[in-house]
Nucleic acid binder design. Structure first.
Lengths: 342, 342
DNA sequence: CTGTTAGCGCGTTCAC
DNA sequence: GTGAACGCGCTAACAG
């Protein structure tokens, strides 16, 4: 194992140079206890002079706790998560924590591996958008590591969590399509195992149900994707291939919406005239696509901040009651759902 | 400081349970030295049984080196960087490293703070897209921490680096616009302090120069942004406000291109007829914007993999000669630069 | 208010 | 092939 760099200067070097003990240096640098102001200055001067930089690894070993948070997301390239991460990061940094971003890629194995690594790294806390079952959360809980769930819920898990009102948002989207005069409305949702996909599907169904039993849920118009672009293409293509295809579609996340739009375009169809489209999730530059896209947007940055806040609270008081925050979504009506009306 | 979780099981616990010494446990778990196969099995069984998880903090302190890489990017929300990070991550994980993603937000102070934190954290290496001057890199070098620069170069710094042929790409883009019949071509580039902005501007100028002195560089058609969307809006608006506005524009990064398109649209202009547009950088869903966008794309994922490879090599042999990789860009011609011709 | 002491969990000498 | 002893750099307990 190659060693890089020259030996670091330690608090002992600083102590020698300042003519005090290592403990005093430690106290000065951490602002703990009270130290004679003159010694304080001497220590600071020496530290500066020697280019001292504290060794967090040693400190963490001693304190049995690091200043690292692990944030495990299911897809780093999804703008939803990058925006959430920004929110987390800003709060973390203010509180003196650093954020390790881990990408589980919707894979339960990767997620488990990252969580084990995080535990070995003695992280102070974990923020997780779970892709798999409850096992990883249980591992964390067993180790006593604070966790906050984001975006998705886990059945049978009591944990701090920040979610959005998926059902309500999906219902808004679907009702909006109904109001705009569409009648055969399809739905492309996510994996059956995720709470978000299930809730958004329920919102869609609720909206249709409300109109009356005859206009009720068209289960033949529901397709399940995997929240990735390609599955949006496939699902939309399948819907368009039906004998009696939908005249509008509600798509349950951003990447699949992109895919759906591609499938629609490749058939030579143009929203909103040929088909109405509403997407869930913030879609960057929704105004620029053809046509501009109606979306149910989530407060992503705020979601990150909330999650970070909950984690901070949990770290401070590991036994406080579980909190579950649900943030509101907003319907942004743009062109893709607004056909010119006779 | 609150303690979370129950005491971890250590190699001593495992040693007791297996009836061996801690040293033997360490040897077994690290595959170093040779251990009696039967003891080996006993140790593994005990570790498994006790749910032992190695403490990386202690190990890192002892080894004076962690298994963490810091990746400092200038904007996490830029798809360019998220894609690069994916490339880095995949290589890092295979090699047993974890990646800490840090977001400097184009701020020299934040960058410096993250680098100091990384050093304190004893990271094994740093991958950096520098926003500021050479100071942070010098700090790293002084500490002997391996660094790889990505995306941007730094004057007067000898360091491993992975870049793209910005000048060539920009020249391709501009030549393409000339070929398509545009004659007054504007350029929106990035901050004067970044090598990428300068190189892309040079490529633009070279293309114009080649056509002949009379068609030569229109310095009045050059604007400097900050690589963010809003500056694209401002710069494009300024160009359109000119007495004699450009009939085409080359925009030197993805976010500013989005901004430029918005400015164009808000004037009621439509590419490619009213104005030709070519953007630099991968723009996700370039096919979906109105009209589909001609781009000079960079091999982002590959760039990340290359950078990670260089870092691996540098960690293994800290004194090997500096390597500088330049990746090629590709012109993707789409609709925004192809007016129907008479 | 300050210094001395001990030990966090591990990897690595050095004897045996 | 194995175990005992030491120390990485730091902070928390205890004396003074």
């Amino acid at each position: 194992v190659p060693r890089a760099g020259r030996p670091e200067t330690t608090i002992y070097d600083v102590a020698d140079h300042a003519g005090v003990s290592a403990a005093t240096v430690s106290r000065v640098l951490n602002g703990k206890g009270s130290v004679d102001p003159r010694l304080c200055d001497r220590v600071r001067a020496s530290a500066e002079h020697l280019g001292y930089r504290r060794n967090l690894v040693a400190r963490n070993l001693r304190r049995q706790q690091s200043t690292l948070w692990a944030v495990v997301v299911s897809d780093v390239r999804n703008p939803f998560f990058t925006s959430v991460v920004r929110g987390i990061e800003d709060v973390a940094q203010d509180a003196g924590y650093s954020v390790v971003l881990c990408n589980s890629d919707e894979s339960a194995e990767k997620e488990a591996a990252y969580v084990v690594a995080a535990l070995s790294e003695q992280v102070a806390g974990v923020i997780l958008s779970p892709t798999s079952g409850a096992d990883t959360v249980r591992t964390l809980a067993a180790a006593g590591t604070p966790v906050v769930l984001i975006d998705r819920e886990l059945r049978g898990v009591r944990s701090d969590a920040v979610l959005v009102d998926n059902r309500h948002g999906a219902r808004l989207a679907t009702e909006h399509l109904l109001e705009m005069g569409y009648s055969r409305i399809g739905c492309i949702t996510g994996p059956r195992t995720t709470s978000t996909a299930a809730q958004r599907l329920r919102g869609y169904r609720a909206a249709l149900q409300a109109v009356g039993p005859d206009a009720g849920p068209h289960d033949d118009l529901v397709r399940y994707g995997d929240f990735r672009r390609s599955s949006g293409v496939a699902a939309m293509t399948a819907l368009l291939d039906l004998q009696d295809p939908p005249d509008a579609v509600f798509v349950a996340n951003n990447l699949m919406t992109i895919g759906a739009l591609e499938a629609i375009a490749s058939r030579g169809l143009v929203p909103p005239e040929d088909i109405g489209v509403v997407g869930f999730d913030t879609i960057p530059w929704a105004d620029l696509v053809t046509p501009s896209l109606t979306t149910v947007s989530q407060p992503t940055y705020e979601l990150g901040r909330e999650a970070a806040g909950l984690l901070l609270g949990r770290i401070e008081d590991p036994r406080r009651p579980v909190r579950r925050r649900v943030l509101r979504t907003t319907l942004h009506v743009r062109a893709s759902s607004a056909p010119a009306r006779a």
